[in-house]
Amino acid sequence: MDKNDIIKEENRVYKRPKLLTDNIMHYCPGCSHGVVHKLVAEVVEELGLEEKTIGIAPVGCAVFAYNYIDIDWIEAAHGRAPAIASAVKRLMPDRMVFTYQGDGDLAAIGTCESIHAANRGENIVIIFINNGIYGMTGGQMAPTTLEGMKTSTTPYGRRVDLNGYPLKISPLFAQLDGTCYVTRQSVHTPANTRKTKAALKQAFQNAMNGLGTSVVEVVSTCNSGWKMTPAQANKWMVENMLVQYPLGDLKNTVKK
């Protein structure tokens, strides 16, 4: 069959989600953010929540998330997204409210807000992009930076005697009674991307069903910050990040 005979609406198996805007993302080539944005857009569309979803954008690389997904957004102060989400959800309980936060935003400056929102069991979704580095400000150490990992503020590698240990925050979420679903996923392969989408979908459904806080950690790459090609970064992530941050559900109290 000729190529042009195949490119027809009825034969399409994958298309760009409608909710993604035409704006070219400012992310570096190969950045995991783009994949997760796409998945969020797909999940919102598939659940028919376009008119109900409110995203809370962080400070960090995803600060401009509101330019890419065509829903209402609030851009938070650094780390405060879960506090904002708590208020929005309580004031408008029928809306779908999610935060989208990086490791610095969620696990350093915003630890208080994220832990307490989850502990209150706010019916929100926290999407946590963990790439072990501060991307936007130029590759400084994050709370999740691995031991020995070089960043611009740990140029000789993170030393636990100086900088403490990589913070595994999802297990902290998992032990809180307010969370119903805590999972750690990645988007480095097609199969993992599918799993992350399924996790996001469950999380969004949990929030709409009032089951408590869902946390979806996505172990991600920052190839620019890690100073690797995107493909090398994926490999490095599997060999290093996933050892410290193994994938899978940490908690799921929701019967399927």
């Binding site: 506090a83 208020a87 929005v88």
Partner: peptide, 23 residues
Amino acid sequence: VVLQAESEVAAINMVYGGAACGK
């Protein structure tokens, strides 16, 4: 809605969020 927040920082950001919703 009445909510005792975890800190003044969280409380004012809840106000920011609520105000952004026109409340």
